[in-house]
């Protein structure tokens, strides 16, 4: 390559936590996609009858599945909150550095609190009515 000028890329910027939030949006988006495939599988199990549904719920109660479900829950909620932040940006608002840092912090705190809340309510929904 010759010495033609290139546009500034990731490597030239000082690190700030808003960068991690940006890449986390993509990571959680891909994780939520896997969660969607699991959702379709769960619906198919329900449509297949009581035995298939019981087997599916049994599979979902293993420790690894619970860890995955917790991860999907956080991924989905973070992607939801940060997605709203992106939609606000699309209107041209909140793009100043201090604003973007403040909204990023808000999204992380909101996502963690909401994940805790949903997991707590989810555990209640899982044990409700169980014999």
């Amino acid at each position: 390559m010759n010495q033609r000028p290139t546009s500034p890329h990731i490597g030239v910027y000082n690190f700030s936590y808003t960068m991690s939030l940006s890449i986390l949006h993509r990571i959680t988006g891909v994780a939520a996609s896997v969660g969607f495939f699991m959702f379709a599988w769960w619906l198919m199990a329900l449509a297949s009858g009581p035995a298939a549904y019981a087997t599916a719920m049994q599979a979902l109660s293993s420790p690894i599945a619970k860890l995955l479900l917790g991860g999907f829950t956080f991924s989905f909620i973070y992607h939801f909150c940060n997605g709203i932040r992106h939609l606000v940006w699309d209107t041209g608002r909140g793009l100043e550095r201090t604003q973007a840092r403040r909204s990023g912090l808000f999204v992380i705190i909101a996502a963690l609190l909401l994940t805790g809340l949903v997991l707590w309510l989810g555990c209640a929904a899982l044990t409700r009515g169980a014999a």
């Binding site: 329900l46 009581p50 019981a54 989810g122 929904a125 044990t127 409700r128 009515g129 169980a130």
Partner: peptide
């Protein structure tokens, strides 16, 4: 809606 249901009940 889902959080208000009994998820184990087919």
């Amino acid at each position: 809606s889902l959080l208000g249901k009994s998820l184990q009940s087919y």
